[in-house]
Design a protein around this nucleic acid. Structure first.
Length: 340
DNA sequence: AAGTAAATCAACCGCGCCCTG
DNA sequence: TCAGGGCGCGGTTGATTTACT
């Protein structure tokens, strides 16, 4: 079906919004409410298309917008929800009061995604990136892939950077271990993916009646300029009118055990995970779970997502939690920096 | 201090779903 | 049933800011 433009673009302004435009939009919505974005700019006297107005309102001017740095709790929630919902940013945003899908999406792409990659976790599947430890590729690939700078094969490039590290006998032992368990993990992972796909594409079939954990963090007043704040005193019941705290269609199940292995920051849950983990490892059920998060008092080598490039903010954020501390087995007395 | 690279994020674009006539 | 319009969503862009040399 052909699609007409959302509005007549002739003469309509694009680009950053001015404070004057913001005030016009706010005044109009305060008086008339929003809706019918197509006609709103004309009625309000704005030289903008309806889409631009909606975006400006939902992502910036809305009175319940929470600005500023993401809290640890919010980050943890984002990661957990993303592991289940994928790039359903609006669904994730609905679980984070005061945060917009755009903000979460940006934060994911600029912070969390990079951090997971540094940690060797695939940000799409939320599983350890076994390609980084594909021993067979390392052993059998042509040495030319390492020596030839024109080789564009991604896995070769990734692996070539690891080959020196793999000369470490301990690391070789890990790689061998992982390789032997890989088939099982792939099976496990594919089950997870099937689970996720089913969940995100058929909202009515799974977990429809499961209660969702609410964010404990209360919604805070918007941190917008004084004009905006002063003009929204009548919006005190915004939260009540807004259905941001409930999911109308994107039901989220409890986290999968495997995700909890990776991300749990709760100490009790950690200990339970540890017990389960030990059982799983002993039974060779879930080898890669040995990368789970651990408390700081264990005798182990930690992989900190930040590494030498970690910013002050990141350190501050993660020192209070074990969320991104991944334990290497004691047998692996290797430096994480050798990995990356 | 100046130039450059990297990081950040507000805003735009286009697709697809849903509703209506 | 289907065409068309409205809207929301996810992906992408590009201006600005920050960090580095």
């Amino acid at each position: 079906m052909g699609r007409s433009p959302c509005c007549d673009k002739n003469g309509l302004k694009k680009g950053p919004w001015t404070p004057e435009e913001d005030h016009i939009l706010i005044d109009y919505i305060q008086k008339h409410g929003y809706g019918n974005w197509r006609t709103l700019p004309k009625n309000a006297g704005l030289q903008r298309c309806g889409k631009s107005c909606r975006l400006r309102w939902t992502n910036y001017l809305r009175p319940d917008i929470k600005r500023g740095r993401f809290s640890f709790e919010e980050e943890e929630t984002i990661i957990q929800l993303h592991s289940i919902l994928g790039n359903k940013w609006s669904a994730i945003a609905s679980r984070l009061p005061g945060r917009t899908d755009n903000e979460i999406k940006n934060y994911w792409n600029t912070h969390i995604r990079k951090r997971l990659l540094r940690m060797g976790i695939d940000p799409v599947t939320h599983s350890p990136r076994l390609d980084l430890l594909d021993l067979s590729s390392i052993l059998y690939s042509s040495s030319s892939s390492q020596l030839n700078p024109n080789n564009n094969d991604l896995s070769s490039l990734q692996l070539s950077g690891l080959q020196a590290s793999l000369l470490n006998p301990h690391l070789l032992k890990l790689a061998s271990s992982l390789l032997s368990r890989r088939d099982h993990h792939h099976h496990h992972h594919s089950q997870n993916l099937n689970f996720c796909n089913q969940q995100t594409t058929d909202n009515t079939s799974l977990f429809q009646d499961m209660a969702l954990p609410e964010m404990s963090q209360p919604m805070v007043p918007p941190n917008v300029d004084p004009y905006i704040s002063s003009n929204f005193t009548e919006f005190g019941d915004w939260q009540n009118n807004n259905d941001a705290n409930t999911l109308s269609q994107d039901y989220v199940p409890e986290l999968l055990p495997s995700f909890q292995y990776y991300y749990s920051s709760d100490n009790d849950q950690y200990h339970q995970n540890l017990v389960d983990l030990q059982n799983n490892v002993n039974n060779n059920h879930f080898g890669l779970a040995s990368f789970q998060s651990t408390p700081s008092n264990s005798n182990s080598t930690y992989i900190n997502g930040g590494g030498s490039s970690t910013t002050e903010d990141e350190r501050e954020s993660y020192n209070s939690s074990n969320m991104f501390n991944f334990e290497m087995p004691e047998i692996l007395d290797v430096n994480y920096n050798d990995f990356m």
